[in-house]
Amino acid sequence: MTRTQTRSATALALLATVSLTLAACADDSGGGSGGEGPVDLSFASLDQGSAWYSYAVSMGQAIEPALEDNSVVEVLTYAGSIGNPELVATGEADLATSFSAVTSWAVNGTEGTPFEGEAFDNLRVLVGGLDQYYFGPITPAGSGVDSLRQVVDEQIGADLVSQPRGSLGDAGTQLVLQAYGTSVDDVTSWGGSFEPTSTDVATNALRDGNADLWIQAITAGHPNITELAETSDIRILDIDDDAVAALEPLGLQAATLPGGTFTGQDEDVQLLGFTTTLIASADMPDDVAYAITEAVIDSADSLREANASMAGFDPATAWTAENTGGVDLHPGAEQYYQDAGLME
Rank of each mutant, 00 (worst) to 15 (best):
S42N: 09
A217E: 00
T110E: 09
Q155P: 03
E118F: 02
D200A: 15
Q61I: 01
A44I: 11
A93T: 12
L228Y: 03
Q155W: 00
D301K: 01
D286V: 01
Y55H: 04
D268P: 05
E154D: 14
L257M: 09
V125D: 06
D69R: 13
E230L: 09
W214A: 14
L67T: 13
F274Q: 04
R149S: 10
D94K: 01
G326L: 07
A321C: 07
S29V: 12
I234L: 12
E86L: 04
F313E: 03
D27S: 04
W214N: 15
Y133N: 05
G312T: 08
V107N: 02
V75Y: 07
A321Y: 06
W105D: 03
Q61F: 04
L14Q: 14
H222E: 00
R3N: 14
W52C: 06
E116Q: 11
V102S: 03
P331T: 12
A211M: 08
A13Q: 12
G30T: 09
L160D: 00
E116G: 07
T173K: 08
L213I: 15
Y336I: 12
A106R: 04
T10L: 10
T199G: 10
W52P: 00
L250R: 12
G181V: 12
I236S: 01
G251V: 10
V201T: 13
A79C: 09
S81F: 13
S54N: 14
G273R: 10
A13I: 07
S58C: 09
G37P: 00
A333T: 11
E230A: 07
A243Y: 07
T90I: 04
G273V: 06
Q48M: 04
T110L: 12
F99E: 01
M59N: 06
E334D: 09
G112N: 07
V57T: 13
N323A: 02
D287H: 03
R7M: 15
L250T: 07
Q178S: 13
T97L: 13
I156L: 14
S45H: 10
P38S: 14
G49H: 14
Q61C: 03
I82D: 00
E68Q: 08
D121I: 10
Y53W: 12
N108P: 01
P38M: 15
V102M: 07
T277I: 08
T199Y: 11
T6R: 04
A9H: 12
D314P: 05
T324D: 02
P258C: 06
E305H: 10
Q132K: 14
P65V: 10
A56F: 08
R207S: 14
G49S: 11
L271D: 00
L329T: 05
E86V: 04
D240G: 04
L126Y: 12
T77Y: 14
A89K: 02
G142K: 08
D208C: 00
T263N: 13
A291E: 11
G34M: 02
T276S: 13
W190F: 13
I63H: 02
L41A: 05
P164H: 15
P38T: 11
E344A: 12
F274R: 07
L160P: 00
D146W: 03
G273M: 11
S147Y: 02
D200S: 15
V187Q: 03
G169I: 14
D159F: 06
V125Q: 02
T103H: 03
D328I: 10
V152T: 11
I236F: 02
A141K: 10
D69Y: 03
T4Y: 02
D301S: 10
A321N: 14
T113Q: 04
S42K: 08
T197Q: 13
G260V: 12
I297G: 01
S299I: 04
I215E: 02
A89H: 01
